[in-house]
């Protein structure tokens, strides 16, 4: 599934970096510690976090993540938006907390996996 389909199905808003909306999502990863994401996330993961600092973009690029979901109604910082547009890193937003966001994403990706296999 790609970012746009997921955003549509789970009602996530595409806030910025929409050029990345066709990125394929391999799996999800949830953490608010960027050092932890740098060590553990994998290519294509959709990253669930509440961190809105611009450093999230560098981490997403470094790890070749498919996108970022900001939870709990958090919005990207102004600088983050500008840079996300430039770098083409897609940032989604939801009012749901991380637990429910991850739960719904997990379910959706699992269902999709079953359909494909």
């Amino acid at each position: 599934m790609n970012i746009a389909e997921i955003a549509d199905r789970l009602n996530f808003e595409i806030v910025c970096g929409s050029t990345g909306k066709n990125n394929m999502v391999t799996w999800g990863y949830t953490s608010d510690m960027l050092s932890n994401v740098m060590g553990n996330a994998s290519e294509g993961n959709l990253w669930i976090t509440m961190q809105s600092h611009k450093n999230i973009l560098a981490v997403a690029l470094l790890k070749e993540l498919s996108g970022i979901v900001l939870v709990n109604g958090h919005r990207p910082d102004t600088e983050t938006v500008t840079q996300a547009e430039k770098e083409g890193v897609v940032i989604l937003a939801t009012d749901l907390p991380a637990f429910e966001t991850a739960g719904r994403l997990y379910q959706l990706l699992k269902e999709n996996e079953d359909i494909q296999s």
């Binding site: 960027l34 050092s35 600092h53 611009k54 450093n55 560098a58």
Partner: peptide, 13 residues
Amino acid sequence: PSNSLLANLGFIP
């Protein structure tokens, strides 16, 4: 490992 620039934000912006 917590409440620090390197842990929370990964690197110095």
